[in-house]
């Protein structure tokens, strides 16, 4: 009798969680997104070097428009690779645990993630348009952090801590303009990898 009751309770708990939180998010997708971001940062750094720009020099940096186009291209490539690995590991995890993927909760989570991200995207386009390049890195970190906190209601709450870290980093980077690449490597690279490892271990 007692065992049946315990099972009832754990069934209730798991049903509540399965239906109200998007729990297929895998920590591995965080690790891979982070690795792609770090690789991208190193590649961008090399690109500066090849163009005779010493990134950590204190002088005013003026980039040619060809270089900027290439940098934007790298950024999008990383975004697609990171999103792709996210989708891949999510589908893999949901298959393994027999969890439905495309549920109301998933849609709500994506919507809550997308709103700040899209606004941030438009904001960055405007910064590019006005040639305010130095502000792009802080703005991406800030809006990404806000998006994560917003989506945290519908998935593991750990993601909110990641969001908070991104926001703090974004705020700091506002005062160190010109080192966007470094802050990107920390925010999108190292923080993602740390978060991924923690989540992967916790919810294995």
């Amino acid at each position: 009798m007692s065992q049946k009751l315990q099972e009832d309770l754990s069934h209730i708990r798991s049903m509540m969680e399965r239906s109200s939180r998007f729990i297929s998010l895998s920590g591995l997708s965080g690790v891979f997104a982070g690795l792609f971001a770090l690789a991208g940062s190193i590649y961008a750094y090399q690109l500066f070097k090849n163009n005779d720009i010493e990134y950590f020099d204190d002088t005013q940096k003026i980039y040619s428009s060809d270089l900027i186009i290439e940098l934007v291209f790298i950024a999008f490539a990383i975004l697609i690779l990171a999103l792709g690995s996210g989708v891949f590991f999510t589908l893999r995890k949901s298959k393994k645990f027999d969890l439905p993927v495309w549920t109301n909760t998933t849609k709500k989570m994506l919507l809550n993630l997308a709103i700040p991200l899209l606004v941030g995207g438009v904001f960055c386009m405007a910064l590019l348009y006005h040639h305010l390049f130095a502000l792009i890195a802080p703005v991406t970190l800030l809006f990404y952090g806000l998006a994560l906190i917003n989506a945290g209601k519908y998935t593991f709450s750990d993601i909110r801590y990641l969001g908070a870290c991104e926001i703090i980093l974004g705020c700091i980077s506002l005062f160190y303009l010109g080192f966007g690449l470094v802050f990107w490597a920390i925010g999108f690279g190292i923080l993602h990898i740390l978060y991924g490892i923690i989540v992967f271990k916790k919810y294995k």
């Binding site: 209730i12 708990r13 049903m15 399965r18 109200s20 549920t103």
Partner: peptide, 27 residues
């Protein structure tokens, strides 16, 4: 019944849930 417990648990933490989604949640 386990199924009824499941249905109630899902509905306690959600608003409207449709038939297909409920079916796949409870398997």
């Amino acid at each position: 019944s386990r199924v009824r417990l499941g249905i109630m648990s899902v509905l306690m933490v959600n608003d409207w849930i449709d038939f297909t989604e409920m079916k796949s949640l409870l398997n």
